[in-house]
Amino acid sequence: MDNNAIINTTDNSNWRELKSKLFLGIVILLSCITISPILLILYELISKGIKQINPDFFFKVAPDTLQAMTAVRNGEILPGGIANGISGTLLMVALAALIAIPVSIVIGIFLYENQGKKYANLIRTLTDILQGVPSVVLGLISYIWIVQGVTKGFSALAGSVALAIMMLPLIIRSTEETMKMLPISIKEAAAALGVPYHKIILKVMIPSGFSGLMTGILLSISRVIGETAPLMLTTLGSTAINLNIKKPTSAVPLQIWEFYNNPNMIDLVWSSSLFLLGFVLTLNIIAKRISLRYN
């Protein structure tokens, strides 16, 4: 045995320790860079948007260009608000949820009940792929199906369908994961009592997994609520409050886009973005709270 080889290996441990510490320094530095955008964005939205947040902002529709120009010229805050956008967003998201939630939960339970089967795996894979389809493509689809095919014009319904297709895979997978986490014994106990299958699902599984399902639903809503591109292709926007699902409708993100394209309305860009982000983050926090309590 060539013992010299071992004895002769030079001691470089100081240098190696130093390298290791340097690397940690780089990791910390890059991690700080990673989180700086969210802090900068929050700061920018709050500092520029807060002054425009007032009751009018929630209850009045957007000003027209003339009103906005006058206000800008006089150095006043912009009149009006985003009531047309808020109502449109609520309408479309509610409709999308109404379409997506029941279907997704049933499909999620199907996947859970058919673990390991070929056909279920196919459905699961397609669901995963659907989750990755860009939202603008779903806008195109909904345009072809609903705008061209059903409402013969831009409509809230078309927007809702695009959003609903976005929500489907999210709720399906979260339903399946929730069901998987329920102890099998719950199901077996019910089955042993002779409870019929559909009642086990409705009365045992869904209530037991309620908070898990709720989390998935809220997260999926928070994912679609800020979507702009698919709505540009389907609902177009509207300057008035519209609650007719067959008519063009505004939405908060659509309004942000309009304000952005109109130099006089720039102040409203910040307040609407602040509102939208606040809404999304609130939904996220509620969802996290529910899932924490559940675990």
Binding site: A5, T9, T10, N12, S13, R16
Partner: peptide, 8 residues
């Protein structure tokens, strides 16, 4: 040895 960066 490899972990310690010894060149053998």
């Amino acid at each position: 040895y490899d972990l310690n960066g010894s060149k053998l």
